[in-house]
Design a binder for these strands. Sequence first.
DNA 1: GGAAATTCATTCGTATGCAAATGATATCAA
DNA 2: TTGATATCATTTGCATACGAATGAATTTCC
Lengths: 153, 153
Amino acid sequence: MSGGDNLLKLVEAEGPDDQDYLLQEQVGFILRKAHQRHVSIFAGRIGDLTPPQFAALAKLRDVGETSQNQLGTMIAMDAATVKGVIDRLKARGLVELSRHEVDKRRLLVNLTPDGRAAIERLIPLAREITQETLAPLSAKEVATFMRLLAKLA
Amino acid sequence: MSGGDNLLKLVEAEGPDDQDYLLQEQVGFILRKAHQRHVSIFAGRIGDLTPPQFAALAKLRDVGETSQNQLGTMIAMDAATVKGVIDRLKARGLVELSRHEVDKRRLLVNLTPDGRAAIERLIPLAREITQETLAPLSAKEVATFMRLLAKLA
DNA sequence: GGAAATTCATTCGTATGCAAATGATATCAA
DNA sequence: TTGATATCATTTGCATACGAATGAATTTCC
């Protein structure tokens, strides 16, 4: 029996255990890196707005006036997070707030003319951001990846 | 010519443009949601440590003592971020810091016995986290997804 | 050797992201 | 009607995440 065999036995004795946990191969770690790369690409093309801020404007463009909480649900942000995002958009005059006349708890959010102009102007850039993010994949791979990613989200 | 035809004409006149930008179908948005889901799964299994903190400990286990900056590079964190993470791990006694004897700029980071015990204990849970995150996919889909995700990261 | 450029770490400011607690308003049910 | 629940929004506290500025130490290059 050779030394190599002994080493193999030792490794096998450990079983599929702690020894072979590689951080770089875990979904969570790679998912975090992929997300970082996307945010970086976004910042390179749209410097004056963050992805969450863009998401809020884009969704308001789709659905029109909604409550802050509903908007948060639609763009996957909890109440505390969406408040900060909307506050900053309001400070820049891109959205306007008003109280719901019937349900006084609700804070209605809507695009201002400036906000609408901004989102229309940015959407072509957002398309480029999507393209650049997916650039390492072929068209076929993009389709596959998006299908599987959607299952995980 | 019917009203429907007029509507169709209007839509076609717009071309493949702003009208069909759907936030929910953009990689960036879904990537963000998938990442959120993973973090949530992580928190459910490992409540007293965040993913970045876990990553730091896991990497130190792999490579042993390194400088703070080098560690940051290995786990994809910039200098400012890694400092905060290490500070909190140090405050909990899971890592210890020392100055590099030759290059006095470098701050060496290493696991304490407590830190080593913690990471060894957590690795099995981390495996479960990876599994649960990938649970919506079949084994074959997992292989495909990981291959494509790695290309994007 | 010494000036210039680089690297390592820290600090500051800004922006998510979420848990938990709180207050105001609505809704449901007894 | 009223008491219990639920919903909407806000606030606080903590933890990433990163750009930019700064200072200290090292390396490079002339």
